[in-house]
Amino acid sequence: MKALQFSRTGDLAALEVVELPTPVPAEGEVLVQIKAAGLNPSDVKNVLGRFPYTTLPRVPGRDFAGVVIEGPESLIGKEVWGTGNKIGFSRNGSHAGYITLPAKGVALKPSSLSFAQAASLGVPYTTAWDALERSLVDAKTRLLVIGANGAVGSAAIALAKVRGAQVLAAVRRPEQVDALKEQGFNAIQLGKPEELAGQVSAVFESGADVIFDTTGFWLPASVQALAPFGRIAIIAAPVDGHVQLPALALYRKGGSVVGINSLLYGVEECARMLEQFGQLFDEGKLPLPTGLVETPIEEGLGRYAEVNQGSTDKVILIP
């Protein structure tokens, strides 16, 4: 099978298109013929050596959709999708023609999603789902999502809308504000950090109950925009990993910070998440992905480079 593989880290030049034998599933595993695989920024960072627990040589890739070829009789021929923390890191990932993983680590693909659409959703949607779950977002929640135009941010506002939360989306550019308003979301344009609290209080009088910062740069300002007993969920940080937290303001508000890391969840836990929100696509409650860039896996090296250079295209690799 054709696959992308790297045997060293630190440079995207380490990534190669190679020919590998089709993997053989162990007892309790399935063999999935991959029809589409998502390319996430974390896949690029993996090749660059940002994850010290990655073992080499390794096929990268976390998200996939495909068809079960071998495994339990009840799953053979089924269209499935999946993601998880070990694939692409300590076991071969999805940027290949086939993948093996535990049978309980795949979920049935929603019929409303194509293979490419399903492959685009794993990391963004499980991250957003986890953020909403662990920060207790429900129909009574006033939610601010910073970076609502990104993959995780757009997933968060869509999922929060289904939960009935009051959603305020914050983005950088005026055209992004206009696009969100056309989708039916209340939106604001981010300016200076010290202005955020005023912008939020103009919409949510006493502040936001939950703030989900998908960018890593708005934690200090978010404390000022928080309602009493509010929660701030974060999935990113500045390059050096540090930020100055106004602890006095945070504890006076009874606030808390919730760290969200999709790499804490294995394929079986992720499959359960996919099952929960996957049905919402078939019920017409979540928007179907659009604007995907489908690319043959042989051209994946160039796509990796584009993502590393800041491209926001959602790339789908097709074996």
Results as ranks from 00 to 15, higher is better:
S256M: 07
P72M: 11
V47Q: 06
P110C: 12
G150F: 05
L12M: 08
V307G: 07
L39H: 06
A187V: 03
A107R: 02
A26I: 03
V257A: 04
T83P: 11
R142K: 15
T141K: 13
N40W: 03
T83L: 12
A148F: 03
A96Y: 01
L219Y: 01
L108F: 03
S222Q: 09
F115G: 10
P102Q: 02
P289M: 05
L292Y: 04
G88T: 05
T312F: 00
P174T: 04
Q199D: 13
Y98G: 02
E70T: 02
P21I: 09
G153E: 10
S94V: 01
L263V: 01
L180Y: 03
E268Y: 02
W129V: 08
L121N: 07
L39F: 01
A155D: 01
E29Q: 15
S222F: 06
G88S: 10
E294H: 07
L12N: 09
V315K: 00
E195H: 12
S135A: 15
S42M: 12
E19N: 12
A128H: 08
P228G: 08
S90Q: 14
F115P: 09
I260A: 10
F204R: 01
A119L: 07
P25S: 08
L292H: 04
T83N: 15
G291V: 05
V67W: 00
L12H: 07
E19W: 03
I318R: 14
Q244K: 15
T215E: 04
S112A: 13
V18D: 08
A187D: 02
C270L: 00
P174S: 11
V162W: 03
S201F: 13
G82M: 10
E294K: 13
V32E: 07
A14P: 00
S7A: 15
P287W: 03
I76Y: 00
A131I: 06
V123P: 09
N40G: 06
V30K: 01
Y265F: 15
V59E: 08
V239Q: 13
L39A: 10
K140H: 13
E70Q: 15
V239T: 14
D313R: 14
I234E: 11
A65C: 05
S94K: 06
K35V: 01
N85C: 12
N308L: 00
A170S: 13
K2A: 01
G150A: 07
R231H: 14
A118M: 14
T55M: 00
V307M: 12
A148K: 08
E294W: 05
V106C: 10
V223M: 09
L288Y: 06
G310W: 03
V177L: 11
R272V: 06
T83K: 06
L4A: 03
R50N: 13
S114D: 12
E283H: 09
L274P: 00
